[in-house]
Amino acid sequence: MANDQTNASPDASNEDRRFFLKQSIAIAGLSAVPTGLLQAALEPDDGPVGNAVKIQLSLTINGKRKRISVDPRMSLLDLLRENLGLTGIKKGCDFGQCGACTVHIDGRRTLSCLTFAVMQHGRKVTTIEGLSHGGQLHPLQEAFIKHDGFQCGYCTPGQLMSGIACIREGYADSPDEVREYMSGNLCRCGAYPNIVDAILEVKKEGLKV
């Protein structure tokens, strides 16, 4: 999960910064509005045209750089699920109350339903689809299967993204600690004890997460 552990400051890479500046300047030049005003750039190829304005952004998703133009009202979650086909990450409540939409942004667990996609310009996003490499499951994914840490599977991607973060953050040293720091991820099937077992095992075995 190397690509997920970069430093946490936004716009870290020069490349990103250059792209950002270029875009700002282009827009400023185009519409003669103050710098920073990103309303512009109507995309001619964006299907049914309405009056909503689209904004371009650049994101690294699961290690791949993408340039996308979005309705600024679109949440990061909807961008991932509806536009990019990354349906592994789930919409459970859309109001930041269930954790099913958890992704990593610049390596930190985040609720993708509570942030607009445009706000994530320049960041690195990892979704559940980015966890396994070359068919090799992440150790926590393996542990979830072993400990049966799910039933219906709908909260599972969020539990996994959160569980990995929980271990990385250093909050997986005791069952009570895991329970507290995983409490932002609801599971209606009640797989909690098995999830806790899976996280503790991966932590205890000192596997790289």
């Binding site: 920073g36 990103l38 309303q39």
Partner: peptide
């Protein structure tokens, strides 16, 4: 949700003047 204009200031004073 109503459409809105999205702005991204770089300095505090720019932000305040936008607001």
């Amino acid at each position: 949700m109503k459409p809105f204009q999205y702005l991204r200031p770089k300095t505090v004073s720019e932000a305040v003047s936008m607001a």
